[in-house]
């Protein structure tokens, strides 16, 4: 069933929670906040002590990321490929380009996708949203690709983001 992917609600949305990225015996956990506005997303990664580790801003043209800026405190770095930027400068592998849809359990409109029951297959990732708690949005999203496992636990959804 090819549902039409839900565009970002006009008012945007925001989610906060915890993200864990695991590859072989490397495991990184951070608190995150994702704020999606019409043509821009802002991802903030921070530690439990409250320190901000990095701030990634994605600009969109239509549904594609046109540019990404990573702020790590004193340094601003820009690139077209946000995954590469994040990976090179923080060591974290995270499929951020599809995140504004995958976080909501939806396929990104840019690439073909397939479904296996609850599981969404896109861009080489297996995306499993779950724990909907009788709401339209998942509170748990797991992303798998090769030996990489990303687990996202949502604390709070907020749809009236700026």
């Amino acid at each position: 069933c090819a549902q039409t992917p839900l565009a970002v609600p006009p008012a945007g949305f925001a989610a906060t929670g915890k993200i864990n990225i695991r590859q072989a015996n490397q495991s990184d956990t951070a608190q995150f906040s994702w704020v999606a506005a019409k043509q821009q997303d802002q991802l903030i990664l921070s530690s439990p002590f409250g320190t901000t580790l990095a701030e990634l801003v994605l600009q969109y043209q239509g549904d594609r990321v046109s540019s990404a800026v990573l702020n790590r405190g004193e340094q601003l770095d820009q690139a077209d490929d946000p995954e590469q930027l994040l990976q090179q400068l923080t060591g974290l592998t995270l499929p951020v380009s599809g995140m504004r849809w995958w976080l909501r359990g939806l396929p990104s409109p840019n690439e073909p996708f397939a479904r296996e029951g609850e599981v969404l297959l896109q861009n080489g990732w297996r995306i499993t949203p779950s724990d909907y708690r009788n709401t339209p949005l998942p509170y748990r999203i797991e992303l798998l690709r090769d030996d990489l496992k990303v687990r996202i636990l949502i604390n709070e959804w907020n749809s009236a983001a700026p």
């Binding site: 409250g50 320190t51 901000t52 701030e55 405190g73």
Partner: peptide, 10 residues
């Protein structure tokens, strides 16, 4: 009080 590099304070 702990200030990080993003002028955020814990």
């Amino acid at each position: 009080e702990l200030d990080d590099h993003f002028n955020q304070t814990t």
